[in-house]
Amino acid sequence: MIAGKQLIILVLDIALSAIVIVAFAWVVASTRRPTAQSAVQSGGYRLRRSWGWFYGVLLAGAFTATIWSIPYAWAQPAQGSSDPLVVHVVAHQFSFTMPQRLPADRLIKFVVTSSDVNHGFGIYDPQGRLLGQVQAMPDYSNVFYFTFRQPGTYTIRCMELCGVGHSDMFQKLAIYPTQTGSSAASLPGE
């Protein structure tokens, strides 16, 4: 089932592509009633100016809107201060060294690195939807904050070609419900 961010992306992609396709079809159809270039050029230049301004404003708006929800720790100071559960992940050819069970509704600070080549660390929910990811790089530790909202069996999957066993590099992760009254329940929400 397509939901969440993927749904937004799909709708945006289809809508924008459809506008472009219609514009092309319209221009192609217009060649059935040809006219002199001078008859269309000045109008076209005016349209180009409006389109240029519109597109520029659109991009500036998209940039401003998106930089508020980037996943990096430096951009999410509230997460760093809220007592997360620290989980170390080491990726190898072709497995992850990490806990097999983690609590739901608890902010988790994944510290992800690799012992050999570049790997990825992608989190898939029980329905198989990709929820987020980070790269696992040798020599560096990537800090990735994440909260599992639903208990269930998740899948961790490598997202970077890492060698001959890349396709087999995935493992299950059990997310168990947090009991009410535990310390996790008192964590501030995001």
Partner: peptide, 17 residues
């Protein structure tokens, strides 16, 4: 268009690779 969606950071975490 598809490239720009992918190059937008909050979308990239579900599109990358």
């Amino acid at each position: 268009i598809a490239a720009m969606l992918d190059a937008t950071i909050p979308f990239n975490d579900v599109l990358h690779n």
